[in-house]
Design a protein around this nucleic acid. Structure first.
Lengths: 195, 195
DNA sequence: GTCTATATTGCGATAGAC
DNA sequence: GTCTATCGCAATATAGAC
């Protein structure tokens, strides 16, 4: 079925998001212009506004999409019984998920301050939801006496900070596979919270 | 001794740096204008250029100053013998130093991509130097059999990521003192690298 | 050393033709 | 849906008066 020349609604939208993701991650939201994004996609700047109301909404959409993906993927993990198994699964999942989309991770970390207050609150709430999943695991382990942490909330944030840090150094062409990285981090996490 | 009216060379310089530090930390380097900085200081934008060649140099100066402070303070720590004592001292130092200047820490983390390539290389080298201090401690402990880590380099980065994460949640008015925070993190670090 | 004024460039966003 | 053209504004940085 023929299309009006120059009309590509089904592919331009995703391409805008993809280009914006890469550019925001590389240069930062405030440093990237709508003209740059349009140039990457191959359209004029004005055409972007057929897909997004404004630049802020584009940033929010990218971050919201990332957080939704994170929580959805997290929900799909198999239900495990022991705190140790659940923690190991969380470590594996967190590392694999974050190494799989470093740009989105970077943006969702770095561009929080460029969100409007309302948008910031939404993303923060999703981040809390994710943190709570780990906190519940640590709390269960502590209740059962298999974990021992001085402060469950701090331990939660410390473990997440440690794991997310993997994105700052991991390179696909490096000496370690994702599986090996997971094993190395699991060894440290396991010991850090052990009774 | 009388001064030419409107001439304040000795205080304007530091005030520019201080204002820029706060504004860059809050809104991001690219999102802050020279006019905003000047407004905070109480001068016109053009006057800033009596103190800095350009905006990039201002950012670099702030980050370089922070890294120099970090390494200088690190050098001044007492010489300790056992790897355990040295690691404990590193944890205490890292947390106290970073909690003491959250804005500079934030900038040195977030604005690396806004540095020119030459400036980036310099900051990176200083960061490596700092990381190497921890790596040497972990390596010594491993050689002596008191630490056991699957990968010393990864353990180094993991510990630093975990510790630096404290700046994202710690608030002075919160429920924990710096000393308590140090104890909580030390407990986790100690166990994470224990043999 | 700071001011006012300005050169120059680029920004986000919109209007209307096709 | 995309284009060209443009509005209104703000950006960095500089020049010259005081």
């Amino acid at each position: 079925m023929a299309r009006t020349q120059g009309s590509h609604s089904e592919i331009t939208g995703p391409r805008i998001r993809s280009a914006a993701l890469a550019l925001f991650a590389k240069h930062g939201f405030a440093a990237v212009s709508m003209r740059q994004i349009a140039g990457e996609v191959g359209v004029q700047a004005g055409a972007l506004y057929n897909y997004i109301p404004d630049k802020q909404a584009l940033l929010f959409s990218l971050m919201k999409g990332h957080m939704d993906d994170l929580l959805a993927a997290c929900e799909e993990r198999p239900a495990l019984n022991t705190p140790q198994d659940r923690l190991r699964d969380f470590v594996d999942f967190h590392i694999a998920f974050h190494l799989d989309r470093p740009e989105a991770v970077f943006i969702s970390y770095m561009e929080l301050r460029n969100l409007s207050p309302e948008n910031f609150a939404q993303i923060e709430a999703l981040r809390r939801t994710y943190e709570n999943r780990l906190e519940a695991i640590l709390e269960q382990g502590r209740a059962q006496g298999v974990f021992e942490v001085a402060d469950t909330k701090i331990a939660t944030l410390a473990v997440i900070a440690m794991l997310t840090g993997v994105t700052t150094w991991y390179r696909q062409a490096g000496r370690l596979s994702v599986t090996q990285v997971q094993a190395v981090y699991w060894d440290m996490v396991r010991k850090a919270v052990a009774a």
